[in-house]
Design a protein around this nucleic acid. Structure first.
Lengths: 338, 338
DNA sequence: CTGAAAGCGCTAACAG
DNA sequence: CTGTTAGCGCTTTCAG
């Protein structure tokens, strides 16, 4: 391993100067700077983060926290896109991204301990919808953190504007002439579930439409199965007076519902319009292609990185805030004019 | 920050002993061991990887390498599932996973430099199908590495058994009575493309079927668009004597093709059977649901971790080998008996 | 502008 | 079984 000493020897200066050169300090002669860089190049010198971190207490490492149990995490397309953009943007700032888990070498540990162990400069909170004890200690610590999946008190949050998206979806259905609009909600313990559901109620009120309990079902979870089941329930409980459109709070659920409705003999969109939320990859390829609301996941990831790095590098502790990322209506063919 | 010294002082022993205790060395009295652990607990001591790494030259860090440009990477569902399982399994061994990119703080650098910089103990090679110069220097270095997306000479590889999968798909079509089987290939510069194409030819030969060039098209890339285009081409060039079944080398392509065929008035599977490869999430929810070949991505990720950790911890350098992971036929409704 | 030296937290001989 | 000590590679005062 080639070190700062090797470079210093070759140049004929002291290690301290090499260090200063590599850290772009003011007080280094332009000539010696050049010589140092050349020597470094020639020797193939690469600084060693561990040594640097030990001396400075800064690791240039950002941790990513998500609960493995929930099957959320990287595998979830929504999160993986956020993560991809987060890590790429963080990279631009010189930070690397490491996964934080609940182990320390061979033994069990907490997320917080793991963060200490690696000495991360900050963390991205991407744990699923449940306010787990496990992450409580990182919430209470003074670790810099930004959240993208949950709203935590006292933490910066970057998240889609669920209200806006819901209103876009419903206004569109309304515009097409629909007045009997049902809602298949995501689990209401989740942000997506509760916020979209609230916006749904707000919308009905604003249009002077009645809140018909028969037009509302809540999914048990985010799976296709629960979507299919919810669709069946919806049909059963509203059979006497069917809705003309349904707003499903999540695309997977919308797709499952669509399949269910069709298997019951409904033509989509002729007999029943359906609109989703998320613009999941699949949505463009169902038949009919699903009209939905797009979340700007790339922007969420980037903004999260911007904010986190900002917190790390600019001392002044800002008030924690929510950054709401605008959504967008994607019109395809699952909704018809009444 | 609480250190080994704080613990030592509280217990009344030397830092060295604390270190030994934490590293589960033999020579530590059970009593002092207990006392040390209690003291550590009480003080909230967490070892510091950076210091440890500096002293031992072992970081317990595994790097993940993928080309961001290609849009492969975390966002790709195939890879994200591998990665998820890789990182989880690596965690069990005590290793953390960090993304390797092409920067070093503020400046551009190579993947290899980045690995040096972080001092990773090994890398997962997940760069896309192109043998880029960029990763060449890590290939030539003595970094421990295992590949999951490409076959590199002299590197361990964990990858699906494309031949097996292809044969499973084709045998199934054959079993259903199909003899005129077309193939929409992935780009042939990719492993998936070339291996599946070769297996297709092998199959035809083994069954004594003629290799009809009109039944073969190659996609430009892995996108839906190129799948749709390929499907159109296939129809055009074989119009006089249409195939009764098509084997598409990738689900996204199969789905796009299915849509195209239907828009041309073909009923699937009645007029045309279609089978894919990959068992992408969407495949279960197209109409009709796509029959396809499943890759065991979880196992790929786990095995990759096993092998990499093995290389790191067991000195003896094994001969590099290919581990082929078996595939599985998933029967749904896109193929009909002739 | 440059050098010397102490120290970041931990490990690994080596003595005892 | 335990303590001492010399580093690991780098940064950072403080002198010069």
């Amino acid at each position: 391993m080639v070190t700062i000493y090797d470079v210093a020897k070759l140049v004929g200066c002291s290690p301290g100067t090499v260090s200063k050169a590599f850290n772009n300090y003011n007080g280094v002669n332009t000539d010696t700077y050049k010589k140092i860089m050349e020597a470094a190049e020639q020797l193939g010198y690469t600084p060693n983060t561990n040594a640097r971190a030990l001396a400075t207490k800064k690791t240039w490492l950002l941790g990513v926290l998500f609960s493995e149990e929930l099957g959320t995490g990287i595998v979830h397309p929504h999160f993986s896109e956020i993560l991809q953009n987060f890590q790429s943007r963080a990279g631009n700032y010189g930070y690397d991204v490491v996964f934080v888990n609940k182990r320390l070498g061979n033994r069990e540990a907490s997320y917080y301990e793991h963060c200490l162990y690696r000495g991360v400069d900050g963390v991205l909170l991407a744990a699923g919808s449940i306010y787990t004890k496990e992450i409580e200690c990182v919430l209470q610590s003074d670790l810099k953190a930004v959240s993208v999946e949950m709203l935590y008190p006292d933490k910066h949050t970057v998240i889609s504007d669920n209200r806006m998206g819901t209103l876009q979806a419903l206004e569109y259905l309304y515009f097409l002439g629909h007045r009997k609009i049902a809602h298949i909600a995501c689990p209401l313990y989740s942000i997506a579930g509760s916020e979209r559901h609230n916006a749904y109620k707000e919308f009905l009120k604003s249009k002077g439409l009645e809140e018909n309990p028969k037009y509302l079902v809540e999914c048990k979870n985010f799976s296709h199965e629960s979507g299919a089941q919810a669709a069946t329930e919806l049909l059963q409980q509203s059979w006497e007076d069917l809705p003309t459109a349904v707003f499903a709070a999540y695309d997977d659920i919308a797709c499952a519902a669509m399949t269910t409705f069709r298997s019951q003999g409904f033509r989509i969109p002729d007999d029943l319009s359906i609109i989703g939320f998320d613009n999941v990859m699949m949505s463009g390829f169902t038949s009919p292609p699903l009209t939905t609301i797009e979340q700007d996941r790339a922007l969420i990831g980037q903004k999260a990185a911007d904010i986190l790095v900002g917190m790390i590098e600019n001392k002044p502790d800002e008030e924690p805030f929510e950054l709401r990322i605008p959504t967008k209506l994607i019109v395809r063919n699952s909704c018809a004019r009444l």
